[in-house]
Amino acid sequence: MSITLNDAIEFITLEADLLDYGQFKEWLSLYTPEGLYIVPIDPDATDYEKTLNYAYDNAEMRQNRVTRLLGGRAISAMPPARTVRMHGRYRMLEADETKCVVRCAQMLTELRQGRERYYSANVTFHLVKTDAGLKIDRKIVSLLTSTEALTAVSYIL
């Protein structure tokens, strides 16, 4: 049986909850070892490896990012910004028994040092089914404002 949209939504909601509640170590375990967390700049880019991105994190860089968030040694993350994110407008683009591609909308509000900021994004998840359940092979966060000037984002989108 193909991976269903409901399975994917349940998984994506779990990921969002872990990020908003600061459970970053648990978040790391949601990825495959080869998995990538990508925040592109160029909305038309397809080959992210050959393009400048905001983030192009393999397992090592994700681990570093989490260490940064939890380590208390980065002034922009002492403490990290608080975030609330909502997903909706889910659409299954491809699905078979072992993998699927789901796209959804993400609205995120950030609060840090009395400033509320907002980031909207289209997020594409490439999920794979493993013995331990669904895992992220690629998460691509396409910010609506990716080619505009952003502000410091010391957290995970």
Partner: peptide
């Protein structure tokens, strides 16, 4: 990407 920009490991701390 590692150091620079709004999601790098350097710039956000400078910015702060």
């Amino acid at each position: 990407e590692h150091f620079q920009g709004p999601m790098g490991f350097g710039t956000p701390d400078d910015s702060e």
